[in-house]
Write a protein that binds this DNA or RNA. Structure first.
Lengths: 336, 336
DNA sequence: CACTCTGACGTAAACGTTTAGATCGTACAC
DNA sequence: GTGTACGATCTAAACGTTTACGTCAGAGTG
């Protein structure tokens, strides 16, 4: 083993084994034959010195960092850790690792994070952005770093997208509620008019239109992507002159907030107001009443992101962007 | 701005501005005076070329990566994302970032991950290990990388520790239950006999001893750190000849599993069996009955980990290890 | 015996920074 | 007018790898 006080590099190993530093490199990478006897000497030197290859130097030479960044609004929303897990599922066997950062949904932070990741020369970026219209990832694209957007986006120059079928999911939630004779269906969406949340809203609007049910503007309220946001959104909906008899929430965390205020005010769920969430995080099974929700395959999404990134990194000629949408389905529980 | 097709480095910028590479570096780092006029020329060149400093090269030269690794069993347990968030809270203002990896609680994976992070020359490692007795972090210590253990560990050569007061927490849970006249108190702990879970058990045992309540061996069962583990552990406890009238779980995720089977079997909580968890994750407020639990300040722990790491990185002489324990308190809800 | 071929290994340049030290003009003091 | 000092900039080494290319001894061939 080792006592390794001083920095030990290939050079140290080479000296000890009485070979050149190139030879050490070759026994490590096996990109060239080396005689069994020298190989053994080098391996012994490595053991004795406790040598660990320096990935930084390697990255510098090979121009790859074997690192991808996952940039998300909040790691505290259980959806994103699940995505991160999916990323690791496919990255780690390849010797790549993920660096995870939160933006708190702040545009400035988001831009700074992207810039930082470009500086770090990550091999790829998975990005869940509220404001992809502003193309905050432009810096990455220019640097030739593949970017995959999380969420159902249309294919866009330079970036791929993978997410659930948000439009279909929004649509499905509405159909389900209409079948159960709800007619005033509210929607609590995100703070901005962009991103996955927007697609879910447009699915919602489309389904209403198809069913010829009038959609009232005030039935769609904006709120933060948080439990507190859900509470506030729900309160606003209940304050309406004609409150809804069903509410679709842009994600489960928000839906849980909505349930909070319904419980406080002793509004019966689903009898008085039905609630449908989105994502199917574990907590959806824990609340009472258990949350009916649109399943969003987080882990698979993470895996798909990683696969696309890997594929992009491997290609020499830029290929046209692609968008993958995972089919969603409704999981019926108690809240609707 | 930029069209930046070809790799643009300091060299490119220097040529464009008609200065040497060193000067570019100095305007970037401000470690030496440079005349305002040249500074402006350089800045213009940077803008026009869309130059982004290469962190990899910088790390190579400075021997710091501004990166710390957080190695945890599972990022799907909400406790760990909260720790990660705490890390980011203090790291990011310093320009450092966290790379998060899961070990799935597998010793081999854990060792591999640590080795990888050493190869990547991270500046520090936060490690939540099931088996720190085997000193899996030895490789990191030898490489001179500061390591902070998550959980309440005694100070140990070469590594610091920060965590909740696990012993005190276990003790508190028992006291609370004894006060409510529970006498057969079970404990669902983790798979191995080590780590934070073990300290919680020893607090439990100590409190029983203090109260002169006999502790039956079969009341402590081992299970996975997962919801399913909790289910299995609870089933085993209920199968006992004399089942417990209260159960303490090593964390909330496990407790939620325990509640699952109690609900299935229509065992009344807390009347027939009281349940106490550990961590106070958000889901504890969602289950029904809401979980009484020992609060574990995840985010503060993450922040403390980062602070210690930063401090260690700054010192030139190795200082003696330290262990920080955060006081815990019991949060009373419905399950006990 | 001169030649080529081949297997095994060494040499050295490059990747993009940082930074200690050298250089160079100019202003100032005498 | 010479010397000095100083501010502004440059030179070049170093960080630890990878890899194209060169070298060299010995085996094989005619």
């Amino acid at each position: 083993m080792s006592q390794a006080r001083q920095r030990v590099s290939m050079r140290t190993v080479a000296e000890r084994a009485g070979v050149s530093i190139a030879t050490v490199s070759y026994v490590l990478s096996a990109r060239r034959e080396v005689a069994p006897s020298t190989r053994r000497r080098v391996e012994r030197a490595i053991d004795e010195l406790g040598y660990v290859p320096n990935q930084v130097a390697r990255s510098m030479r090979t121009q790859r960092t074997d690192t991808v960044a996952l940039i998300v609004p909040s790691i505290l929303n259980p959806f994103y850790p699940a995505v991160a897990r999916g990323l690791q599922d496919v990255l780690e066997p390849q010797g790549s690792y993920g660096i995870v950062v939160c933006t708190d949904g702040d545009p400035g932070t988001e831009r700074r994070m992207i810039e930082q990741m470009v500086a770090r020369r990550v091999d790829g970026i998975g990005l869940s952005s509220y404001l992809h219209r502003g193309r905050p990832f432009e810096a990455a694209v220019e640097a030739g770093i593949p970017v995959v957007l999380l969420g159902s986006h249309a294919p866009e120059p330079g970036v791929d997208a993978v997410g659930p079928d948000d439009v279909g999911g929004g649509r499905r939630a509405v159909q389900y509620l209409l079948e159960r004779d709800r007619r005033r269906i509210g929607f609590i969406t995100g703070p901005q008019g962009e991103g996955p949340a927007a697609s879910r809203v447009s699915g919602y609007l489309a389904a209403l239109r198809d069913a010829a049910v009038p959609a009232a503007d005030d039935l769609v309220v904006r709120a933060d992507f948080s439990r507190e946001g859900g509470r506030e959104g729900m309160r606003r909906l209940l304050d309406l002159a004609a409150p809804p008899d069903a509410v679709i929430c842009t994600n489960d965390v928000v839906a849980i907030g909505a349930l909070d205020v319904l419980r406080e005010l002793s509004v019966r769920v689903p009898q008085d107001v039905a609630v449908v969430g989105f994502d199917d995080i574990e907590a959806a099974t824990l609340v009472s009443p258990a949350l009916t929700t649109i399943a969003n395959p987080a882990r698979q999404i993470g895996q798909a992101v990683a696969r696309i990134l890997l594929q992009r990194m491997a290609e020499d000629e830029p290929q046209p962007p692609q968008a993958i949408a995972f089919g969603t389905h409704l999981i019926q529980r108690e809240s609707a």
